[in-house]
Every structure is written in structure tokens, then in C-alpha cells.
Design a protein around this nucleic acid. Structure first.
Lengths: 237, 237
DNA sequence: GCAAAAGTGTTCGGAGTACACCCATGA
DNA sequence: TCATGGGTGTACTCCGAACACTTTTGC
């Protein structure tokens, strides 16, 4: 390695690199974000996205998984890089780049696995608190992206328990898009993907008739995931 | 500001942060990438994406614009953040995060404005050289993204001169998607957007009959850009 | 006049959309 | 028996896809 190359590297500025995760959940009624109390802030009631520093020897994806695991004790979460935020003044303490990740978990898994090291709370998208730094911008972008992604790919399953009913799924999509959907068209479109397997079991206690449970055909789901499914019509966007 | 906050920041690892730009152009026949010769490498014939370091006081978008300007002398280029690459071993010299940007320029502007500080060359997508680091992955992702984006938004104009003909535009889309399009359906779809203004002038020298020039209705273009145009059908993807 | 590219219209099928009634069951 | 949510079928419209002929003009 020639010396001038090394010199070129050595004279450059270095920066802090962090990850912030926008964690979505669905409780059967509305979409939620998982936020943590920013303990180290002066202002007591500042909520923040779950975040952390990237360590020396880990990849970005690994760092994002680790940070998510620290909070939720969950592994194998749906996690996707969203955007990198790097405004010089975004963090008032010191310039920090933040790579925002987008995560989908299902609320049931989380409440079982909850880590108590953090003070965390689900917030409905309609009643979000005031955010730290540029986290509001990150959240806006994540919501946009969730809508886009859910309209193209059958991503919604990541937010639901293993067994779910079609009305539950419809409620989820209505929450994501903020608009009502026709249940006849919705279920036809959904079933036409052949991605759902109908179970013998019905959901009890919620409605009188009870809705059949379905589960995802995992094999087809994985295979078809990256194909363009046009899962829901564009008009919802 | 409390001391423990500062301490939390001070003990973290810092990293180099760079930008790499995937620069697309179109010469009337095929899609091209603009690459620069990596002079500082041992291996003489290594080509690389145009890149540079992020400076202390500039935003990411500013850094990307500056780096693009250094190479092409062009301003107001279509430039969009694509993805951040951060594998610990991606740069063998020292760990470096690279934020990949996606740029569209039109080849005519570039050849007029060319800066000679860099040894740069257009490469056809079919005959790309061996890349440095993970640049091949960046390029793959950028091509995918270009296809997606061009299918949804009328982004193709960014790659063409101010005045262009419909057959030129069709060639461009065929190059982007790598498939042939029906000229009747294409021109109908295109004109239905009302984004094109027909000029009195014909292109001469290329075909005997000559094709009419069009230009973009800039106002409508800007207004409609972020709406979901479904510019070309999904089936091209 | 002929070759080569430009320009235009019609038909068909499938998908999106709107819409209304019956079913199962707990209370 | 009645109220509540679950489950299904049909008709219309519009858009995408396939396809062929005429026009212009340089040679």
C-alpha cells in the first residue's frame, strides 16, 4: 500500500455513526410506533426512536439487529434500511450520521419478550409525542415507505401474529393507508395471491359468527416476496 | 449539557464517511455509467464510481452535489440518495461508510462541461469493467432502482437534452428496461400525461421523414413529479 | 420509386371498483 | 328473534396489450 493513499485517509474527518429504528406494530386497531424514553436528556418527557451506535466490527444490518434485540429481545425481525440522515446540525452535541432502519414486529411477540432495560411505549400514529432531533422526519419517511411497500408487497403479515383472520388483515391495511377498503374486493384480491392457507379454526369471542383463521404459506411468501405483486391497487396511495 | 452525555459521545468509535455516485447517462442508443480511473490504486486499470469524502460542515446532499460538480462542472443535477454501505471490510484500507447517490445527467451537457481533472469515461451497462470494493453491488442496486423509478415517475427526461423526439424517448425506456416497447402504446401513454409540448421543429439527418421535437412542460413536470403516475406498466419490470 | 423510420386507431381481455344480500351465532 | 360482524357474486368501466397500415422524404 502506498503511503499517499494512507495519508489521504488519515487527513479526513471522522464522524459518529448511529442507527435509529422506526419500529411499527399493530394491535388489532391501529398502527403503533415503539418509542423509548430518552433518559439522558434534560427534558424529561422527550421520547425518541430506539437507537444506538454502530460498533467497530459489525455491519449496519448487524448493528440494527443488535439494537433491536437489546430493546425487544426479538430476533429475525423484518428490518430494512430506510435512509441516512446527516445534516451537520441534526445532533446538537456532535455531528452524527444516523442510518434509519424500518422494522415491523408484531405486538404479541413483543409483549412476551419485552426487555425492561428500556422504558418503552407504543404510541398510536395519531398521538405521537414531540420528537428528538430529526426523528419526526424519519418517522414521516417511514410511514410513507410503509404505505408504498405494503401496496406492492405482502408485507403486512410481518405485523400480525402467525394466525390471523381476514378482517384483522383488512383492519391493518386500513390503518396503514388511512382509508376504508371494500371487504369483498379486499378478500378477493388477497385470496387471489394464493398466499393464505385457511385453517379449520375460528376466532372466538370477538364476533358472534367468528372469522376463520388463516396463516401465510411461508414458502410461497418467501419466493414471491420480491416479485412485484401489486398487492393493493394504487388508488389507496 | 450534562457531562455523562458528552462522555457517552466521546467514547464512541468514529468513522470515515464517503459518498459514491452512480451516474447514468444516455447517448441515444444505450444507457451508460460515468466512471473514473482510480489513480491512487496500484492496479492501473481499476475503474471506480465517482466518490469523495464528506466534509465537516456540509450536508450529505451538498457533499454529493459538490463531488458531482468537481467531476462534471454541472449543477442542478438529478441526485437522490440510494443506500448506505457499511460492511466493516468493504474498504480494505480503513473502515469507511459510503452513502451511495444516484445521479441522472444528459451526456450532451456533460461533454460541454467536462472537467479534465479526472480521467473519466462512459461505460455501456453491457460492458462494465471490474469494480473497486463493493461498487458492483452499488451499481446493481442503482440499476434496479432506476427501473423502478422510471416505471413510476417520468424521470427519463433527466437523461435527455432539452429537445427530444418520441422515438428517442422510447429508445431510452427500452434501454432502461432492456425490452422492446410498442411504439403506438408508448406514444399514446406518453402523450396522455400532457407533460410534453410539441415543437414546430423536426429532427433532421437521422431518419428521412424526421421526427418532431418535444420539450417537457416544466411546470406540470415539477407539479406532478411526486404523484404516482404509473408512467409505464408494471409488466416491463 | 423504394427503403426506412414516423405517425396513428381499433379491438379484446382482465383488473379495479362499486354495490347488496345471506349466514352464523351469542345474547 | 334480533343484532352484529362474516362471507360471497355480479355488472360496469377503464386500462393495458396486441396488432397493421399510411405518410414523409432522402437516396
Amino acid at each position: 500500500m502506498r503511503l499517499d493513499i494512507l495519508k489521504q485517509y488519515e487527513t479526513q474527518d471522522k464522524f459518529l455513526v448511529a442507527i435509529d429504528s422506526i419500529i411499527f406494530g399493530f394491535d388489532g386497531e391501529s398502527l403503533k410506533l415503539l418509542l423509548v424514553k430518552r433518559g439522558i436528556e434534560n427534558e424529561k418527557d422527550t421520547w425518541s426512536l430506539m437507537g444506538g451506535w454502530v460498533h467497530q466490527e459489525e455491519s449496519l444490518q448487524d448493528a440494527a439487529s443488535r439494537i433491536l434485540y437489546e430493546l425487544t429481545n426479538l430476533k429475525d425481525i423484518y428490518l430494512e434500511q430506510l435512509h441516512t440522515f446527516g445534516d451537520p446540525l441534526r445532533d446538537p452535541v456532535q455531528r452524527t450520521f444516523s442510518i434509519a432502519y424500518f422494522a415491523l414486529i408484531n405486538v404479541e411477540d413483543y409483549s412476551q419478550a419485552l426487555s425492561s432495560d428500556y422504558e418503552a411505549q407504543w404510541f398510536s400514529l395519531e398521538e405521537l409525542p414531540t420528537f428528538l432531533f430529526d426523528h419526526a422526519e424519519m418517522v414521516d419517511m417511514a410511514i410513507q415507505y410503509l404505505r408504498y411497500k405494503a401496496s406492492q408487497h405482502p408485507i403486512g403479515f410481518e405485523l400480525l401474529p402467525e394466525k390471523f383472520t381476514i378482517p384483522q388483515l383488512q383492519k391493518l391495511y386500513e390503518a396503514i393507508f388511512g382509508s376504508e377498503l371494500d371487504k369483498r374486493n379486499f378478500s378477493r384480491k388477497l385470496l387471489s395471491t394464493k398466499l393464505l392457507i385457511k385453517l379449520d379454526e375460528k376466532q372466538r369471542g370477538f364476533s358472534k359468527k367468528g372469522a376463520y383463521f388463516y396463516k401465510v404459506d411461508e414458502e410461497k411468501y418467501k419466493k414471491q416476496f420480491n416479485t412485484f405483486l401489486n398487492f393493493l391497487p394504487n388508488s389507496v396511495l
